[in-house]
Design a binder for these strands. Structure first.
Lengths: 107, 107
DNA sequence: TTTTATTATCGTAATATTGCAATATATAAA
DNA sequence: TTTATATATTGCAATATTACGATAATAAAA
C-alpha cells in the first residue's frame, strides 16, 4: 500500500518517526554538515558542494525547513541558510530521551 | 528517479542516513518501545499490540534486525526478540556525535 | 503422523521518495 | 527596461516503501 497507518500510533511516535525521516537521507546529512561549517551559507554553494541538481537540493532544503531545522534568510539574490540551533538541540534531546527511556528487560 | 545517489556521499553519511531510515517509521518506534517494556518479547504479542498484520510486523522486525538493533532468539515455536543493548548505545553515541559535531557559524 | 501454532517469505497493489529538466519567480546589474 | 543570477516550483519517470493475503517453513502437541 505504501501508506503508513499513522492513526494507529501515538502523536509522539509519529513525530519521532517523522524527525528521523527528515534526517534519513545522505544529502540532507551532507547539507546540514556543510551549512554548519560555513560562515555564509548560500544555496548555490551547496549545489556545487553536494553534486546534486539545483532543484533536488532545493527540495531537500524544503524538507529540512519543514521541521524548522534550518532557516533561510533572503540576502538580495541569494538565500543564507542556517541551522536553527534551538530546534537542533530540541531534537537532540528528544532523540536522547527516546534512547534513554528504552530499557532492556530481557535477554 | 527514486534512487538515492549514495556514491556521491561518504560512507559515514550513508551509514548515518541508513540508521535514521530504520528508525523513521512509527511502527518500528512502537516495536522498539514495546520490546523494551516486556520481560518476554514474542512476535505474536507484538502483532496484537501494534495492530498491523503479522507479515507487516515480520517485515519491520527484519529491518530492525538488518542493522542489528534487535536480536531474535528461537524458543520452540516462538521467537524472543530483544534489543541489542550494545548496538543501541553505539547508535545513540553516533547520533550524538553527529549532533555535537555540527557547529553553528552563521546567523 | 496429523494437527495446530508461530513466524517468515513471496507476490502484489497502493503510495511515497528521489532526482532532474523545464519553467517560474525574484532581485541585482547593466 | 533588459539581462543575468539565484532559488523555488512543477511535472514526471524511476525506484523504494508500506501493507497484507496467500503460502511456506518450523516445531510443539495430539
Amino acid at each position: 500500500m505504501g501508506i503508513t497507518k499513522t492513526q494507529i500510533f501515538s502523536a509522539k511516535q509519529n513525530e519521532l518517526a517523522s524527525t528521523f525521516k527528515v534526517l534519513a537521507h545522505p544529502a540532507r546529512i551532507a547539507i546540514l554538515q556543510y551549512i554548519s561549517q560555513q560562515k555564509a551559507c548560500i544555496c548555490n554553494d551547496i549545489v556545487d558542494e553536494i553534486g546534486l541538481a539545483q532543484p533536488t537540493i532545493s527540495q531537500h532544503l524544503k524538507e529540512l525547513k519543514s521541521i524548522d531545522l534550518i532557516q533561510g534568510e533572503i540576502e538580495g539574490k541569494k538565500v543564507c541558510y542556517c541551522i536553527n540551533l534551538k530546534k537542533w538541540q530540541q531534537i537532540q534531546e528528544s532523540l536522547n530521551a527516546f534512547f534513554d527511556k528504552t530499557k532492556f528487560n530481557c535477554c
